[in-house]
């Protein structure tokens, strides 16, 4: 089914442009497969996947204290916040290497359609936060039966 969906195509193009700008405005122009150095770019990095009934948002956030993760949904915007806590009782001179960034973060992502606020599920496994958001009924594609007279 490769039907032409102009609005979806435009949206995709816009997202691609955003992504491209995001990429080139950072310190490294190529794709990084993991969390880069501190403060280099938006954190956490997100993947957004869509199917007919839901959106799936994946956030790359290893080492975040699960108790600090909060999610909020309003209309079509998902906001993720949390804290990656530093190791305790350490003096700066104890460090030989410090490449992992720590601290509080907050990030919002706008989804193309409204979602049902009561049907948001999230899990945090292997350092990846996965949020599944059901589309609101109005946003779901509906099949209209055709009467044959």
């Amino acid at each position: 089914m490769n039907s032409f969906k102009p609005w979806q195509e435009l949206e995709r193009l816009r997202n691609d442009m955003d992504l491209m700008l995001d990429r080139y405005s950072g310190t490294t122009p190529w794709r990084l497969a993991f969390l880069p150095g501190r403060g280099a770019r938006k954190y956490p990095q997100l993947n957004v996947i869509e199917d007919e009934a839901r959106y799936e948002v994946e956030a790359l956030a290893p080492g975040v204290d699960p108790d600090t993760i909060t999610l909020s949904v309003q209309d079509n915007t998902l906001t993720i916040s949390g804290e990656k806590k530093p190791a305790e009782d350490l003096r700066p001179e104890d460090y030989h290497r410090s490449e992992r960034s720590v601290g509080k973060f907050v990030r919002s992502v706008q989804l193309p359609d409204h979602v049902d606020q009561d049907k948001v599920k999230a899990k945090y496994r292997e350092g990846i936060l996965t949020v599944v958001l059901e589309k609101s009924e109005a946003a779901k594609p509906r099949q209209i039966p055709v009467e044959v007279g």
Partner: peptide, 20 residues
């Protein structure tokens, strides 16, 4: 993977981010 390495009296500690 990015790592933190720090040292205490008794041991050396390595933390490595390995998401997924």
């Amino acid at each position: 993977p990015p790592v933190d390495i720090f040292e205490k009296e008794d041991a050396l500690y390595v933390l490595a981010d390995l998401p997924g």
